[in-house]
Design a protein around this nucleic acid. Sequence first.
RNA 1: GGGUCGGUGCCCGAGUGGCUAAAGGGGAUGGGCUGUAAACCCAUUGGCGCGAGCCUUCGCUGGUUCGAAUCCAGCCCGGCCCA
Length: 370
Amino acid sequence: MKPFDLKNQDTHSKARRGVVHTAHGDVQTPVFMPVGTRGTVKGITPEQLRTTGAEIVLANTYHMLLRPGTEVVEALGDLHGLMSWDGPILTDSGGYQVFSLSTLNRIGEDGVEFASHIDGKKIYLDAKTATETQNRLGADIIMCFDECTPWPCPQEHLVKAVERTVRWAKQCKDAHANDKQLLFGIVQGGVDMDLRSDCAKQMIPMEFDGYAIGGLSVGEGHDHMIRTVNHTAPLLPEDKARYLMGVGMPIDIVESVRAGVDMFDCVLPSRNGRNAYAFTDDGPLRLRNSQYVTDTSPIEQGCPCYACQNFGKGTIRHFFNVGEMMGPILVTIHNLTYFQRLMKEIRSQIENNTFNEWANEFCSKHKDEA
RNA sequence: GGGUCGGUGCCCGAGUGGCUAAAGGGGAUGGGCUGUAAACCCAUUGGCGCGAGCCUUCGCUGGUUCGAAUCCAGCCCGGCCCA
């Protein structure tokens, strides 16, 4: 079976409605994938995650490799067993940690040496080890080991990063030895359109199961991001899933869907939820703010999530103020539900061929959040 | 009644002649977070002023000193010990 089926193509934009087929089930796109870096989406159970509408979840190779380690994950029934999640899982290769843990690593031509952020132990990650590790962790979609560059980034570094990312991608493809898993390639190149084009041109002949746009949402800002996505997404094969890594704010997602992106992941709904920031259709709420002290209304009127059905803002604010776990739990559930409801709306608008107009309205309403 | 230790900003608490509008916590208020080193991090927190700056503040009152939260005297209040 083809890994990706295109179901509808919006006629007023590049937005698409599709399905990704994985060993643990289908994923309706455009899709938002919550992040469960170390084997769990922080603060909620898989059952709660399911009720938000999530179909697929992320985990991270670098973090699982450090703890508990590949053998232990295998012994616990691979990632699906460990996470108690029988749906699709995607693992990031550790390429993001090349960026996020840059003070703890050294990038070489063949791979990256990390000083473990836990005990300083040397961890070497390259295309082969990242792929073999992911083969064994057992996710349904695995990612090439890439170099996620920072922003701003000197041009010569950007060029080198693209070279390495392309070279490593070939090595990942060669090392990949688990035919139950889809392997996605990643296009790098910062906000340099020529580099993005070069990188895409070199990645496509390698015939990956899907293609990601990496190296964005690293501080470049909404305009740079969207310009780069608008340039890059159309370069990728129409019959393969396109995945914008690490994005993002709702408005970033809507604009990127418009550019033809199918898949997203981001820590924002979960992390910000833990930090009392609630996403709503009327813009964000900072639930620690004193204005909510005695507010008995839900975070979002009409939201079917457990938090909105059972608690008012004042109670949730109280939970945050006294440090009760329930605050982070409730807002995580709400935010993930918000994102899933947004994706559902997006899919429905594409099916009705009304996406573009809807997106215009959404973006004008949320432009302040960019 | 005698002795002794102490009374500092919203709270706790450091400071014991000038660099002190006063360390550090807590609390409060506001902000940030984008393929998670994040249930975390940052900022503000006496008043007035855009600002230089001015005013008020370390129990109360008075004193010493160029200068006092800091030294002295009296008083008030609290803890402990003795009677």
